[in-house]
C-alpha cells in the first residue's frame, strides 16, 4: 500500500481536514453525537437551522420511513439565536479549535431577517463559527422556506444581504432540488457573494396510509432524504458543476458510504455532507470519512482533490 492519501480540501473559503461534513438538521448542534463517534474524524459539521426566534416546529407525526429513505416535516424547530449563542456555541467553538469547520445553518422568512441573523452571528460568534450556510430551500415550513430557493432573483437578494452582513465569514447557500434546473440559483448565489453552494436539500414528498385514508405526516408533505435521493443529488451537482466552471460545490443527498462520497466528488463537489446516514448509524460521518480515505488508497488516488469534477466533461 502507498502512502496515506492527502484528504485535505478547500471549499467555500475554508480548508477542511477531509471532505466529509455532517449535514444540517441531522447532527443537532454536534454535542448530541459526541458519545457516538470521534468528532475529530470529521472535516466539519453544519448545525441545525438557526432562526432569530425559537421555533417549536410542526405537529407530530413529523417523520415517516419510506423505501430506502425517509420523509421529515420537522418545521425547523430550533432553540433560536439567543439560546444558540449562549448554550450551543461554546461546544462548537471547542470543536473548531480541534480543527473542525463549524458551519451555522440559517433560516429566516425575510431578507431583512436573514441579514440580521448573519450580522448577529458574525458579531457574536467570534472564534466559534467558520462559515454560514443559508437555507433557502426548506420544503416544510409555510412562508419563507422554499419560496426563496426557486427564484434566482430572490436567491440573489438573500445572498447579497447575508454576505453584506456576514463580514469576513464565508457564506454558503443551500439549494433545493425542487426546481427543474439548479444552475440559475447557483449562479445567482455565487455571483452575489456566496463562496459555495450546497445541494441538495430534501425533495418534497408525501406518504399515505391507504387503510386509514390518512396522510402519514401531520404536515401532509415532507422532505425526502436518504439513499433514495442520491441519483437526484448527483445529477444536480453535476448540472451546476458543468454550468458554472470552477464553482465551489458541497454535495449531499443520500450519502451512506465512502464510495457514495467519491461519486459526489466525481460529479463536481469539493466536499460532501452526510445527513440521514447518521440516523441509520450514529457513527456514519466518521466511518464515511475513513471509507473515503480507504477508497483513495485502494484506487491509487494520492490526493482526494484528483477526484473532484472527474466526470464534468463526460
Amino acid at each position: 500500500m502507498g502512502a496515506a492519501p492527502n484528504m485535505s480540501v478547500t471549499v467555500g473559503g475554508l480548508t477542511l481536514s477531509n471532505p466529509v461534513l455532517a449535514a444540517s438538521g441531522t447532527f443537532g448542534y454536534g454535542r448530541e453525537y459526541a458519545p457516538h463517534l470521534d468528532l475529530a474524524a470529521l472535516g466539519g459539521l453544519v448545525t441545525k437551522g438557526v432562526s432569530l426566534q425559537p421555533r417549536a416546529g410542526n405537529a407530530p407525526p413529523r417523520i415517516r420511513e419510506t423505501a430506502c429513505g425517509m420523509l421529515n416535516a420537522i418545521g425547523l424547530a430550533n432553540v433560536g439565536l439567543e439560546v444558540f449563542l449562549r448554550d450551543k456555541l461554546p461546544f462548537l467553538a471547542g470543536l473548531r479549535q480541534k480543527g473542525l469547520a463549524v458551519v451555522v445553518n440559517l433560516y429566516a422568512e425575510s431578507v431583512a431577517e436573514f441579514a440580521e441573523l448573519a450580522g448577529r452571528l458574525a458579531g457574536a460568534a467570534g472564534e466559534g463559527v467558520s462559515a454560514l450556510e443559508v437555507n433557502v430551500s426548506c420544503p416544510n415550513v409555510k412562508g419563507g422556506g422554499m419560496a426563496f430557493g426557486v427564484d434566482p432573483r430572490a436567491v440573489a437578494e438573500v445572498t447579497a444581504a447575508v454576505a453584506g452582513a456576514a463580514g469576513a465569514l464565508p457564506v454558503w447557500v443551500k439549494l433545493t432540488p425542487n426546481v427543474a434546473d439548479p444552475a440559475p440559483m447557483a449562479r445567482a448565489a455565487l455571483e452575489n457573494g456566496a463562496s459555495a453552494v450546497s445541494l441538495i436539500n430534501t425533495l418534497l414528498g408525501m406518504a399515505i396510509d391507504a387503510r386509514a385514508r390518512r396522510p402519514r405526516l401531520a404536515n401532509l408533505y415532507g422532505g425526502l432524504s436518504g439513499p433514495a435521493v442520491k441519483p437526484v443529488g448527483l445529477r444536480m451537482v453535476h448540472q451546476v458543476a458543468r454550468a458554472i466552471p470552477g464553482a465551489h460545490i458541497v454535495g449531499l443527498g443520500g450519502i451512506m458510504s465512502g464510495e457514495d462520497a467519491a461519486e459526489y466528488l466525481l460529479a463536481g463537489a469539493r466536499a460532501v455532507q452526510v445527513g440521514t446516514a447518521s440516523f441509520v448509524d450514529p457513527g456514519a460521518c466518521a466511518r464515511i470519512a475513513g471509507e473515503l480515505t480507504e477508497f483513495c488508497r485502494q484506487q491509487g488516488v494520492a490526493d482526494v482533490n484528483e477526484l473532484v469534477g472527474g466526470l464534468i466533461n463526460s
Binding site: P60, S278, F279, P282
Partner: peptide, 14 residues
C-alpha cells in the same frame, strides 16, 4: 413516538 436517530438530533420524536 416515531424515531429516526434516537439520540436527540433529528427532532422527529416530538
Amino acid at each position: 413516538a416515531p424515531m429516526a436517530c434516537g439520540v436527540g438530533a433529528c427532532l422527529g420524536c416530538a
